[in-house]
Amino acid sequence: MTRMSPMGIVLAFCGFSALAQTPAEVTLTRLDCGNGVTSSDIAFFSDTNAYDGKKQELVVSCYLIKHGDDYLIWDTGYPAAVAGATATGPTAKFNLVEQLARVNVKPEQIKFVGVSHYHGDHIGQAGSFPQATLLIGKGDWDALTSTPPPPGANPAPVKHWISGGGKFEAVPRDKDIFGDGTVRMLDMPGHTPGHHSLLVRLKEKGNVLLTGDLAHFRENYDSNGVPVFNTNRADTLASLDRFKQMAKNLNATVIVQHDPRDIEKLPALPGSAK
Rank of each mutant, 00 (worst) to 15 (best):
V171L: 04
S146G: 06
N251H: 14
H191K: 13
S146V: 03
L135R: 11
M188D: 03
V183S: 02
P130F: 00
A252V: 08
T192P: 13
K175R: 14
F178G: 06
R218M: 15
A247F: 02
P189S: 08
T192H: 10
E219H: 09
G137A: 07
L202S: 08
S163F: 13
M185R: 08
P227C: 06
P227D: 11
D142P: 12
V208F: 06
R242K: 15
P172Y: 07
L134V: 05
P155N: 02
G124M: 07
W161S: 00
S223P: 05
Y221F: 12
T236C: 13
G165A: 04
P155K: 00
G137K: 06
F243V: 04
A126Q: 04
S163R: 08
L202T: 08
A156R: 12
W161V: 01
G194S: 06
L198H: 08
H191D: 15
G206M: 08
M185A: 09
D241Q: 15
N232S: 11
A132V: 01
G225I: 01
G127R: 11
P148F: 01
S146F: 02
R242N: 12
L210E: 07
A252W: 09
G206W: 07
D235C: 04
R242G: 10
N249Y: 10
F229Y: 13
D176E: 09
T211V: 07
A238Q: 12
M188A: 13
N207I: 00
S163T: 11
M188G: 05
A126R: 01
A153K: 07
G164K: 01
K159T: 12
T145V: 11
N249C: 07
D180F: 02
M185Q: 08
P189N: 05
K203L: 02
L198C: 05
G139Q: 01
V158D: 00
